[in-house]
Design a protein around this nucleic acid. Structure first.
Lengths: 345, 345
DNA sequence: GCGCCTTGTGTGACCGGTCACATTCATGCC
DNA sequence: GGCATGAATGTGACCGGTCACACAAGGCGC
């Protein structure tokens, strides 16, 4: 404990060294747990460290050794449930490994802006985790210089699972497939889909899963409706569907979108699940408390964040080997918003 | 542009210096915009910088100069709307000032755990922004060593506004006062209150505003019901209120809580706003899309985050002077969940 | 008794910047 | 012409650690 009150600058290893009557290198050995330090010396140094309240300067460590014990999460958004949860997972894992966590927000998908943000993140030193669920994130992932340790949190691995690129993902395709099957099994002729913005030009994993389930059931395949991320987008996107009496089941790209859809149906005077069934995606915390409570699929975003960090950690320290990312199984959560279609004619 | 392909290490100022045929100090002067560098020399150096793709090493800068251009946000949570929005605001402002943003989550309010987290944040170098809306945050704010630049985001300033401590806040008292008055003006005899966890042992600002409005109206003052942060807490806390037929108006400490309350009322078969009026707090993005749409008060959390950063920036660089934090005015948003009590007997 | 390996410790250079001070040269002024 | 002055530039030390290497002392084999 530092009893001497007004210490101006924090103690350095040289301060500790003189206090313990050894060289600074010996102090360095003690902090790093080097084996060949005599027991009595080690104790003397530890006592001095305690006395002076010494803490190793992270900046100096990073500069001298190159290794930085820091991660920056690049993301287009920090407030949406999925994004925020991934961030939370990364932070948890990073804290456990005593890594510092930085964030960088990709405000625009503009190439120059994204490149600048990637640069900023790179300047911070340490590794990168890029949430690539949207064009900005995908662009950022592509713009990361090859020599930097980076892990992408992606919608679906571009190369088939088993490719050893440092990516993590949830099985969105399987999840969408499950919910769609659930709705079809209730007797709906088909299921309409209000999509979240796709991360790329390619068809999203969620869309693929939905389509697959329809095809297997021989159900007609309506054109997906493009939504945005929030409830407002879901509302705007679904006024058309709400007015169409042939629509009896709607799958939404996420729970926020579903909220807007629910609202649009309410405004159109169509009851849920009496006339129309609605299902969401993600199982956000509010979904269980809506009226009607929302049928959805739970995805383990915090776990995903933790995996992303674990992978990055493995990339950055040779001690920790790179365990393959375990893809967690999505869980269908059936609540009140889904039921059989109105008239089983 | 760096055309020479495989540069192993990034260029340092000495590399630039030799390339431009000057000393490293001159390069340093150029990057820092020092006036006394001959125009032609400056151009030569800038050309070399561009050619080698030089970027100033943030770590070395921090070590050598002491100043770090980094902020760490300490918070108990990253997923709740208010917290996430403050974080977003800080990030926006920090990005504009090209500061790096770090986050540290206070997982437990335990004193030792909080102290450890503060230490970690301090180790990162740079300034601190502590979100002190809860016991963990308040503890963290108290545990920050005096010599560190820090700004607290607090519920209410402990000293009356005008005290010059580096704090920012929204006028929660006024906001609660406004909503409560709104409900009373509709004819309700009194307004019940489901509270969020208080940041301290003292009465929260929201509670104070609510109480003040009741007192002014001569309304009876029911005991506040203690909730937690999320919908589950609101639901659990309000089953009692939902069962009590004398309850006709409920104010909730935040919108998530209100969601749970709405659900509890629905389950008890009481209509909103027919039998019971409900109002929330914060105007979270989903609130406008609930059925019934939630009456609430909007608080400018992103603005609050930006103010917090501005204040901290002023603390860390003498160039930027410390502008007093402008307290934004809370805005009452009346939607569908509030109306007159059932029978104006 | 000599060489050799192991254990414990110290020295100097270095990471990539900044800072304080020294140096050079062209001016302006008396 | 001599000298103070300021502009333009260079030199060495330093921030707080790490790394590579040197070196002394003790134990062991022959």
């Amino acid at each position: 404990m530092n009893v001497t009150g007004h210490t101006r600058r924090p103690a350095s290893i040289r301060d500790v060294a003189t206090a313990a009557g050894v060289s600074y290198q010996t102090v360095s050995r003690v902090i790093n747990g080097h084996p060949s330090v005599k027991q009595t010396t080690r104790e003397r140094v530890l006592a001095a460290i305690d006395e002076l309240g010494f803490r190793r300067n992270a900046t100096a460590l990073a500069l001298a050794s190159g290794r930085s014990r820091a991660v920056t999460v690049l993301t287009a958004n920090t407030t949406h449930y999925g994004y925020a949860s991934i961030l939370q997972g990364v932070e948890e894992a990073a804290r456990a490994a005593s890594y510092a966590v930085g964030i960088g927000v990709l405000e625009s998908a503009d190439e120059a802006a994204v490149a600048a943000e990637v640069q900023r993140a790179a300047d911070a030193g340490g590794g990168l985790i890029v949430i690539a669920y949207d064009p900005a994130g995908v662009g950022a992932l592509a713009a990361v210089p090859a020599e930097l340790p980076v892990v992408g949190v992606v919608e679906t691995p571009a190369s088939p699972p088993g490719g050893d690129r440092p990516w993590v993902w949830t099985d969105d395709r399987e999840a969408a497939y499950e919910v769609t099957r659930h709705l079809l099994s209730l007797g709906h002729e088909t299921v309409h889909y209000v999509a979240i913005p796709s991360s790329t030009r390619r068809t999203s994993a969620r869309t693929t899963g939905w389509r697959q389930a329809l095809k297997e059931a021989g159900a007609p395949e309506p054109r997906p409706v493009q939504g945005s991320w929030g409830p407002a987008g879901g509302h705007a996107a679904s006024v058309g569907l709400a007015a169409d009496p042939s629509v009896t089941a709607i799958l939404c790209g996420n729970d926020d979108l579903a909220l807007g859809v629910l609202r649009a149906l309410h405004e159109a005077g169509r009851s849920v699940p009496g006339e129309v069934s609605v299902a969401g995606f993600d199982d956000a915390p509010h979904s269980a408390y809506l009226t009607p409570a929302l049928t959805t699929v739970r995805l383990d975003f915090t776990g995903l964040g933790r995996s992303a960090f674990a992978l990055l950690h493995g990339l950055m320290e040779e001690s920790a080997q790179i365990a393959p990312h375990p893809v967690s199984v999505p869980e269908l959560v059936v609540r009140e918003s889904s039921g059989p279609p109105p008239s089983r004619a």
